[in-house]
Design a protein around this nucleic acid. Sequence first.
DNA 1: ATGAAAGCGCTAACAT
DNA 2: ATGTTAGCGCTTTCAT
Lengths: 349, 349
Amino acid sequence: MSEQARAVTIREVAAAAGVSIGTASKALNGRGKLREETRARVMSAAERLGFRPNTLAQGLLAGRTYTVGLVTCDSFGRFSIPVMLGVEDALGAGQISVFMCDTRDDPIREQHHVERLLARRVEGIIVTGRRTEPRPGIGTGLPVPVVYAMTQSTDESDFSVIPDDLGGGALAVRHLLATGRTRIGHVTGPRRFEAARRRAEGAAGALADAGLPAAGEVLFGEWSEEWGRQGADILLRAQPGVDAIFCGSDQIARGVSETLRERGRRIPDDVALVGFDNWEPLAMGCRPPLTTVDMNLGEIGRVAAGHLLQAIGGAPRASGVLTVPCRLIPRESTRGNPADPAAASGGTP
Amino acid sequence: MSEQARAVTIREVAAAAGVSIGTASKALNGRGKLREETRARVMSAAERLGFRPNTLAQGLLAGRTYTVGLVTCDSFGRFSIPVMLGVEDALGAGQISVFMCDTRDDPIREQHHVERLLARRVEGIIVTGRRTEPRPGIGTGLPVPVVYAMTQSTDESDFSVIPDDLGGGALAVRHLLATGRTRIGHVTGPRRFEAARRRAEGAAGALADAGLPAAGEVLFGEWSEEWGRQGADILLRAQPGVDAIFCGSDQIARGVSETLRERGRRIPDDVALVGFDNWEPLAMGCRPPLTTVDMNLGEIGRVAAGHLLQAIGGAPRASGVLTVPCRLIPRESTRGNPADPAAASGGTP
DNA sequence: ATGAAAGCGCTAACAT
DNA sequence: ATGTTAGCGCTTTCAT
C-alpha cells in the first residue's frame, strides 16, 4: 500500500524550516545562539518529517562509531547468551550498539568476522565462549581492545573474565556441610576441562577445611545425564553411606537424581543434591527442584563490557584473568538435615 | 606493552606508495587503468600498514550501510538463537552485519532499540520471539522493511515466518501410526497458546484421516515437566490402554516419561513417546532418547532473512504469514511396533 | 542570530 | 596512467 518511506536528511529539515544546514544542526543539538522562534521552527520541521540524525555520519566526524563486536564461539548457546545480555546492559546505557557474529567454532570464520568488524571500525571486541577452556586469542596487535568473557585466551597478555569455579565448588560443599552432610561425593565432567578440575578442587578444599574426608574419589566422566546415572551407580556401590552428592553440572545432577530415586534413596532426606549452572528448565524440572551454583553469567558480561569501555576510554590495557564469584541457589534438593528431623521437615516453625 | 595500534586510512597508504588517494583507491579496488607496478606498490603498502577500507565511509558514499537490526523478545533464548544463526547464515554471505538488541519484553525498550537502529540506518529489521504468539508490530510506516520470525505481528500487512505447528502435530501422529500405535493421547501446553492449539489440531486431523479416535481429550496444561508428570497420570487413569503419547514440548515429554516409568510402562514397548522442539540436551537425556518434532528454526531464520534481503533489494513488500515445515527426528522412544516384536527389537535385518 | 565552508574516509567522474 | 575534485550527512569553526 504505502510507499517505502525514505530516511530524512538534515538538509531536508533545513529546507523545510527555511534555514541553512548549519543552523538546523545547531537547533537540533541545542548548540550555538539561535532565536527561540527559529529553534522551534526547525524542531517542528524535524518532527514533522520524522528526522533521525544519521549516527554514522555523526561518527565519521567524531572519529567514532559507537559500536563493538561480539564474537561468540558457543553458537549463541547456553552460556554465551546470558553473557550477551550482560554485555548489552553495560553497553546499551552508553549508546553503544553491538554487532554479533558466531564462529561455529571455525577459526577461518572467526578470522573472517574479526576482519569484518575491524573494517566496520568497531571500537572494541568481546569474545565469548562456552565453558572456560583457554583458547588462542583472536589476534595480536589489533587496533582495538579485546576482552574475553566466559572463555580465556592462552595469551597471558590478553584480558579474560571467567566464573570462579574454585569458589563455586567450595560454595556447594560448604552449603552441604551447613545442612549437616558429612559424606559428600562428587560426580562431574571430563577431567580435561579446567572447569571440572577447578570445581573439584574447590570442593576438596572446603571438605579439607572442615576436616572431613571426601566420599570416594572424584568421578570424572561426561557432561551428560547418562553419565550422571552411571556415576551415581558407581558412587552408591563404592560409598553406600554417601549422604550428599555435588555434581559438576545440572545435567549430571539430573542423571544422578534419577538413579538415586531408582535405588530408593530419597532426595534430600537420604541424599542431598547440588548441581552447577542453574540452568533453570533443568534445575526446576528436577524432582525435587535442584539446589545449584549460578555462575552469574550476566555479571560476567557486564564486567567484561565495563572493562572494554574503560579500555576504549583510554584506560591502560588490563591483562590476566578476572574471576567473578558464583552464587548458590538453594532449592528443595538440599532442604533439611538428616541428623535433625525438625529441619528436614522444613517449613513449619 | 605495545602501543594501541591505530586504524589506517587510505590517505596513509597513498602517501606510503607515493601516489594520490584516487590512484590508491583504484589500485585497491582493481578499478581503472594502472600500471601493474603501481598497483603492486599500493597493494604492498596497504598490506604493510594493515589497511582495511572503512566500511562506513564506503557506505556513506553508496548510500548503504550493509547492516540490519535483529530485535529479539526472547532474551536470546531457546527459540530465537537458532533463528539468529539462520539469519546470520543468510546475511553473512551478503556481507551484511547484524546489530542485536534484546527487548526484555519491554515495549519501551523495544521502541528505544528500533529508534537506535533506524538512526544507524539499518537497511531492514528482523523481529524474533518466543513461540509464535501474535504481537503488536514494532511500528507502521517505518523507513525500512521489517520481517517477523518465530513470532507474528497482529498487523496483517506485516510479514511473518513461523513454524508449521499444524503440520508438526500431524507429522508426530502419522509417525506413531506408522509404528503401529492406535490409541494416541496428547499432553500439551496452555490452551491460550496458538502453538498448542495448532499442534493439537494437526494431531487430531491425522487421527481423523486414519479413521481413529483420540485416546481421550487433549490435556492442556503448562509448558513444564511437572505438568508432564501430572498429565501422564491423568491420561493413564482415564485411558489405561493408551499405547502412545504425543507431547506439546520436550519438557512435557520428560515429565510424561518419568510418570510412565514409575507406573511400570516401558518406553517404547508399552507406550511410545513423541516430543516437540528437539531441544537436544533434554531430548537426548531422556531415557530412551526422545523422538521429537524439530521446528527447523535455522531455516525459519534463513527464510526470514532471505525475504528481508529481497525487500531491501526493492522487491514488492510481502505480507501475511509464511509457515516453514517441521521435521520429525526419530529416536528410541518410538522404536518398534507393539504388534510386531521383530520391529520392536530394532536394528537386525 | 544566521550562513558559508571545511572536513571526517572513501569512490567515481572528470581532467591532465 | 595518474591526479584532482566533488560529494555522501553531519558538526564545527569562522564570517557576516
